[in-house]
Nucleic acid binder design. Structure first.
Lengths: 344, 344
DNA sequence: TATGCCGATGTAATGGATTACATCAGGGAT
DNA sequence: ATCCCTGATGTAATCCATTACATCGGCATA
């Protein structure tokens, strides 16, 4: 009874037209006469026909999907960015393949799989630490593949980017501490080679310098954006003699890990030390204490990246390389909550 | 210079064999002679050939991908489950399409898109509130499509499931409060019709009954698993006269929202009220105070669901409907941290 | 009436890999 | 020497939708 699913042929037969007409009715309704159009739609109803996307993709030399490369899916920071991407992309009829790159970095072997030709029509990259050569040479998406960076980026690779002004954002964070009266201000950065780490650290330094405050190496702790690394930074802070009274951490997760660890040591925020995070995760306003932080418009970042990629996919390759890669910078804002106060 | 990418034909030509042999070399190396195999591999190297997955999928009547239906991507609970799924699935050569169902529930219209025939070879469903009929009748994955449920499930749909024993888990949570000496215990549940809500609430009731404690309707608050709903529950708690001294909330996010809101009202946990969550999110040990909660083996849930789906996809349809749907129940444990203490 | 054009539709090639079936060569058995 | 069998390989149909090109009918203009 239920043989194979109905194909365009069956529809054509029922409607009494050729397969070409059915196809046209579906992808370009205006070119067929109204009478035909109706009988085709009717035949589609009757047969229960559904387009075979794979066949279309094969013929059109597309894949119907795009891939998003996320450095770490467990980081809640990315969820809303992905929502934004998925929203725009599925509206445009694309599938969104989400790929966590963290296993790849250690297992280069599997990497090119994700780039198999025809596997994806485009790439949104949220991970600035991917192996450059791998990205450009080996795996199939040769230098001409539509590709946009969001949040993070890679300097040597000239591609459209959607970012925020990380430097200015960290400056804002630090200025806020300065404004509250802090004179001893520290910083916890992300992983060493990350572009965000660099810009945020530079912003922090710049703001300190502008305020005439010391930039002390022993007040600049290392982290990796994770909760645990925030806790580790807290331990360093506790261990030092001359402690900063205000700290700006390059991610909310670190800020929360930091505060959590201090709490365990009976040190309270903001009474004993003020904390400014970065990201404004959903949980930030619910944390104890509610976190002062830099708000990133994450859904917007995702949407903007998706739109940019769509545009990029629509422009023919030769035009693509010619024009300079557009750079969108979205605005951020400081959200003042209760993890900051005047110094003790 | 760079025409279209090399196809199996080009390889065949270079290797001096037929396309059939190339295909066999790739998908079934044992049947070709060693000499041929070598020359084919060599030709692949030389031409830079990559398999066109779309063509293979068309021919094999597969899609090469599976879809995961997540109720809410922003909920950090799902990240590790997705990691587990992706790990197993990409090992097996499948793409993983992650789909947030929250826009769908309101926009039924778009729903069937995701189920287009040949769009996915299987489904992992983490959302027990999907429209049953939609799932079974309309969209293409007619009743025979490989489909497994994880975390949540739908009673009327008999499919393999990977779950935890939610009822027993909540019993554990409540027993812990009882053991600490609490006699007035409340509960905050998830969204009304959710299967998890029901089982966890039942577990809570059962444990109270077993301990000879009152099950008071005014101590059972409504929530929806979100941070905000936890905060709302806290406001209800604050507003009531006769307050429970211990609360078990059906998700960590709610527990954190609850604690955060209480903190704002100068009520502290666990001094004034003890809190037990559910899930053991990454942030739970870093929260202030560190959260006592039920640990769910989330990566394992993801892995198990993926393995089950793979097996399901391998068994022919007729066998599939015949055999009873397997049910895997993974163990949970109570993690005692600092959000619980004896009652004031 | 003949010519030309346009809109609507059909015909058939195409995309790339898979695989049922056909073929062929070589070894072993009689 | 003949026949059969087996392992290796080739031939060609197939999966389904798309689209360049061909065709056809009808209307308008000369």
């Amino acid at each position: 009874m239920t043989g194979r699913p109905p194909s365009i042929r069956d529809v054509a037969e029922v409607a009494g037209v050729s397969t070409a007409t059915v196809s046209r009715t579906l992808s370009n309704p205006d070119v067929v006469s109204e009478k035909t159009r109706e009988s085709v739609f009717h035949a589609i109803q009757e047969t229960g026909y559904r387009l075979n996307v794979t066949a279309r993709n094969l013929r059109r030399q597309e894949s119907g999907g795009i891939a998003v490369l996320v450095p770490n899916l467990s980081n809640p920071f990315f969820a809303r960015i992905l929502s934004g991407i998925a929203e725009i992309m599925s509206e445009a009829g694309y599938n969104v393949l989400i790929t966590d790159t963290s296993p790849m970095s250690h297992d280069e072997h599997r990497f090119p799989e994700y780039f198999r030709l025809n596997q994806t029509d485009g790439l949104i990259i949220l991970d600035g630490m991917l192996n450059r050569e791998l990205l450009l040479n080996r795996g199939a998406p040769d230098a001409r593949a539509p590709m946009v960076f969001a949040c993070e980026w890679i300097d040597e690779i000239r591609r459209p980017t959607v970012t925020i002004d990380n430097r200015a954002a960290s400056e804002m964070a630090v200025r806020h501490l300065v404004r509250l009266g802090h004179r001893k201000i520290g910083h916890v950065g992300g992983p060493p080679d990350n572009v965000l780490t660099t810009s945020r650290r530079d912003g922090t330094r710049e703001a300190l310098r502008a305020a005439g405050l010391p930039v002390r190496a022993d007040w600049f702790y290392d982290g990796d954006f994770s909760l645990d690394s925030g806790a580790a930074a807290a331990r360093s802070w506790l261990a030092s003699k001359d402690r900063p009274t205000g700290i700006h951490l390059a991610s909310d997760e670190m800020a929360m890990g930091f505060i959590g660890e201090l709490h365990r040591a009976q040190v309270s925020v903001p009474q004993d030390v003020s904390v400014v995070g970065f990201d404004d995760l959903e949980i930030a306003p619910h944390f104890v204490p509610p976190l002062t932080t830099i708000h990133q418009p994450r859904i917007e970042i995702g949407r903007a990246a998706a739109k940019m990629l769509l545009e990029r996919m629509r422009t023919p390759p030769q035009d693509r390389t010619r024009r300079p890669a557009p750079r969108v910078v979205l605005p951020v804002e400081l959200v003042e909550r209760l993890s900051t106060a005047p110094p003790p």
